[in-house]
Structure formats: C-alpha cells, structure tokens
Design a protein around this nucleic acid. Structure first.
Lengths: 71, 71
DNA sequence: ATATAATGTCAAGTATATATTACATCATGT
DNA sequence: ACATGATGTAATATATACTTGACATTATAT
C-alpha cells in the first residue's frame, strides 16, 4: 500500500497533529499514523469520519488514480 | 449500519448481479450482499475497486449525508 | 407448475483493522 | 544541553471484514 499524503496534507492544512485528528475521529493515534504510512486499509466509516473532521470529501482524500491495490 | 441503496442502484444501472460484481471486484458474493445490506463496513480499497468496476466515484457510492455511524 | 437465476442469510473459519502499551527518533524551544 | 511535543514503529490482544459452504426465498422464464 502507498502512503496517503493527501491525508497528511489535509491535516497539516488544518494544523492538526495525528493525535488531535485521532481524538476527533475517535481512533488511536497509531491508527491515523498507520493510514498515513499506508500500513492500514481503513474502513469506509473511518474514512468518512476523517473526511468530516478535515472538511474534505472521500474523493479528495481517498481516491487513488494511478495506484496499484490488490484487494 | 444502513443499507447502501446507491450501490444497489449503480449495480442495477449496469445490469450486474451481485455475483458478477463480486467476481469483478475479486470478493465473494456474500461480501457484496453484506455491504448492500449494511452488515459490513467495507475497507476503502474494496470501495475503490467497486467504484472502478461500476464507473462511479467514492462520493457517489459511499458518501453518507444524513446517516448516523458509530465507528 | 416447475426449473433456474438471483438474492438473503447463517455458521464456522481466516485475515486484518484497530487498541493498548511502550520505546525510539526528530523537531522545537528554553 | 535539556525538556517537551510530534511522529514512526513494534508486540500483543481484540473486533470485525471477508471466505467458504450451504440452504431458503424470491424473481423470471419456460
């Protein structure tokens, strides 16, 4: 899996730390970190929650144009 | 969780059965059925795959405006 | 009426998303 | 140099996404 730099950028845009986003989304800081690092394949619900916290759409944060996924 | 009728409609629009979509997405028919029935909270990767198969965006198939999720 | 396809659902198993705790590193400020 | 906040990562545990197989029900067609 590839890193999610769009998420990292959107978080920076709001000047939120991983912990702040994690708290706002109701997950652990490690979960946010793992998503940004591309180690986890998050659930759609968590993606939706993150989108609402950061004021972005699913397509803005999670659409992948070129990338290669397996499942 | 609430049913995903947008997915069901998009599938119907393409005249695909749950099995056909499942095969195209590389998952089991039960998984597609569970997502449509709102029993599963699918991963973003699977959502992306389904979107590509059906020619829709994440926002079109998986954005939830009104609904209430817990996590 | 009777096949057949499509859907809904259940049970048991496997894979993995997420939690918790902990520690190391990097950055920033004092 | 030292403290503190932010980030990256690892280990173990738990919840749940997803699989496989099977069966019942609801179309759809002959």
């Amino acid at each position: 899996m590839s890193k999610n730099l769009k998420l990292k950028a959107a978080r920076a845009e709001r000047d939120m730390t991983q912990k702040a986003l994690a708290d706002a989304a109701g997950v652990s800081r490690q979960t946010i970190n793992a998503i940004e690092q591309g180690e986890y394949n998050p659930t759609i619900k968590l993606c939706l929650t993150i989108c609402r916290v950061l004021g972005k759409t699913l397509d803005e944060l999670f659409w992948e144009d070129e990338e290669n996924e397996s499942l």
